[in-house]
Design a protein around this nucleic acid. Structure first.
Length: 510
RNA sequence: GAGGACGUAGCUCAGCCGGUAGAGCAGGGGCCUUUUAAGCCCAAGGUCGUGGGUUCGAGUCCCACCGUCCUCACCA
């Protein structure tokens, strides 16, 4: 007999005992008067008024001392101690241990059970604010054993924390029950997205929805997921970016649009990549990339300030200062500083020589764009601690970006980097259909040469461009990455509720 | 994809030079009417990730596989 089965059986037996005593096992609703946090906020006032209050939550700790018991009840907002005395809970004359409410609480309520309690407020002799229970109600029994995390009342120090990341990601419900910090991560994430919407709405952007299932994917360099529509006998792709559809909307005359949604890339999984992830993309007509640069600076520093009350936040071992203006550095200037060379006109063999010199490994079939990307990522990017804009990228890396107005070898593009991670990418959008066709054709050539991430040619998109795309600036923000910065997490899995995991072999699902 | 570390009770962890499995918490039985990581007494709980191998004997050594984490490579 497995120990877990014993624990589950014990809890089922207790449920049966409650039912036998006439307790409703799964009631339909429960009226509470306060959330725990509200109750604590108005504690003195409510206590002096002698008011009866009702809360609902999970039993998070239980300390039975014979004819009196203490416990903690935790709801979405916080936890509070409750106190029960036998002679106050049991009706006069009722003492049968199988049915008396106090003994049922003592013997049949477990850590993790959902209960409702009603009573007045009191302060114990050690000073803890406590709900003095008159009546308790079962709301739902927790039949599976829970990891027990003990918490010191004074210091909040936690013991035996449920911390195995594998278990936590595989069983997020349990993680959230037991780890209040993780609940907080997702509250911050939600507020971040809500603030992002507000800033965009206020700036006159219209929120839209574009297809997840696409006949042709595009807008980024990545391998897609494929799926199939049965009735139409048609293969479809899950989008890797929203870009090409959103720009069609600018063509259509919607001046400013944005979308916050999942993209899907059929690629590796690691600390900063999950195959489905959340992107915010926005596009503004009549603007160029400098508009987006200011928008990113304003929105991101605004969100940081709104959530943390300061623009300088702790991250990893250090801190990140989001106070504008963020430093700007030109792609080739940064590269020149590290390598001591101007590489803007460097050809393949020269770039390869530089890569060798600095010990940067590159694939044998790498083109110029790839080489520059490698060099930059290896030599320059790690040097950026604080939020920084890298601007004016080589044209080879950006098939959808508009050529730089002063230098045909560059595009008008920037990335925002913070905490060693790219958090935003933006450019002046390429709106010349003939130039765009040529860039697509170059992508086709790379594709033919074995680059699986090269973009497919999209005739339908080109036709839209031929209707006339006004000057337009576009921006993409990695929502998960931003959430990592705001919650001081080093793994994307900590900010995605249900990250993709490998199957666990040979173990039954819980 | 490569390298390294790890996987022992429901949870958090010990387990030495190979000798047959330990603790705390949770759970069970008692005692306890202001406790708070409540406390005290008693009893129970294990296919040591999976599969092979070496050995008289493997949680421990070797090999393979699965999973997680870290570093590196690639994409946001």
């Amino acid at each position: 007999m497995e120990a877990r089965d014993d624990l589950i059986r014990a809890r089922r037996d207790k449920l049966a005992k409650l039912v036998a005593a006439g307790v409703e096992s799964y009631p339909y609703r429960f009226e509470r008067t306060h959330r725990v946090a509200d109750l604590l906020a108005r504690f003195d006032e409510l206590r002096q008024a002698g008011e009866q209050v009702t809360i609902a939550g999970r039993v998070a700790a239980k300390r039975v001392m014979g004819k009196a018991s203490f416990a903690h009840v935790q709801d979405d907002s916080g936890r509070v101690q409750i106190y029960l005395r036998r002679d106050e809970i049991n009706p006069p004359g009722v003492s049968d241990p199988e049915t008396a409410p106090y003994s049922l609480f003592k013997t049949a309520i477990d850590l993790g059970d959902w209960i409702g309690v009603r009573g007045a407020l009191m302060v114990t002799k050690t000073g803890e604010r406590t709900l003095h229970v008159r009546e308790w109600t079962l709301l739902a029994k927790c039949i599976r054993p829970l990891p027990v995390v003990k918490e010191e009342a004074e210091t909040g120090r936690r013991y035996h924390e449920f911390s195995d990341p594998d278990e936590r990601y595989r069983n997020r419900a349990l993680d959230l029950v037991v780890n209040p910090d993780e609940r907080e991560v997702f509250r911050i994430r939600a507020r971040m997205i809500s603030l992002m919407r507000r800033y965009l709405d206020e700036a006159g952007f219209l929120e839209v929805e574009t297809p997840v299932l696409q006949p042709l994917y595009g807008g980024g360099s990545a391998r897609p997921f494929t799926t199939h529509h049965n009735q139409l006998h048609k293969d479809l792709y899950l989008r890797i970016a929203d870009e090409l559809y959103l720009k069609r909307l600018i063509v259509g005359g919607l001046d400013r649009v944005y979308e916050i949604s999942k993209d899907f890339r059929n690629e590796g999984v690691d600390r900063i990549h999950n195959p489905e992830f959340t992107m915010m993309e926005c596009y503004a007509a009549f603007a160029d990339y400098t508009f987006m640069l200011e928008l990113v600076e304003r929105i991101v520093s605004g969100i940081v300030g709104d959530i943390h009350g300061t623009r300088e936040i702790r991250y990893g071992g250090g801190s990140l200062d989001f106070t504008p203006p963020w430093p700007r550095v030109r792609f080739f200037d940064a590269l020149a500083e590290k390598t001591g060379r101007a590489l803007i006109d460097a050809d393949l063999s020269e770039l390869r020589a530089v890569a060798d010199e600095f010990g940067v490994e590159v694939p044998d079939n790498a083109g110029r764009g790839k080489l520059l990307d490698e060099l930059f990522g290896e030599l320059v990017e790690p040097g950026f601690d604080r939020p920084t804009f890298v601007i004016d990228y080589p044209i080879e890396l950006s098939p959808l970006a508009k050529r730089h107005r002063h230098d045909p070898r560059l595009v008008e593009r920037f990335e925002a980097i913070a905490g060693g991670c790219e958090i935003a990418n933006a450019f002046s959008e390429l709106n010349d259909p003939d130039d765009q066709r040529a860039r697509f054709e170059e992508q086709q050539r790379l594709r033919g040469a074995g680059d699986e991430e090269a973009m497919p040619l999209d005739d339908d998109y080109l036709a839209a461009l031929e209707l006339g795309l006004p000057p337009t600036a576009g921006l993409g923000v990695g929502v998960d990455r931003l959430a990592m910065l705001l919650t001081n997490r080093s793994s994307i899995r900590d900010v995605i509720l249900f990250p993709l995991l490998r199957d666990r072999d040979g173990e039954d699902e819980r």
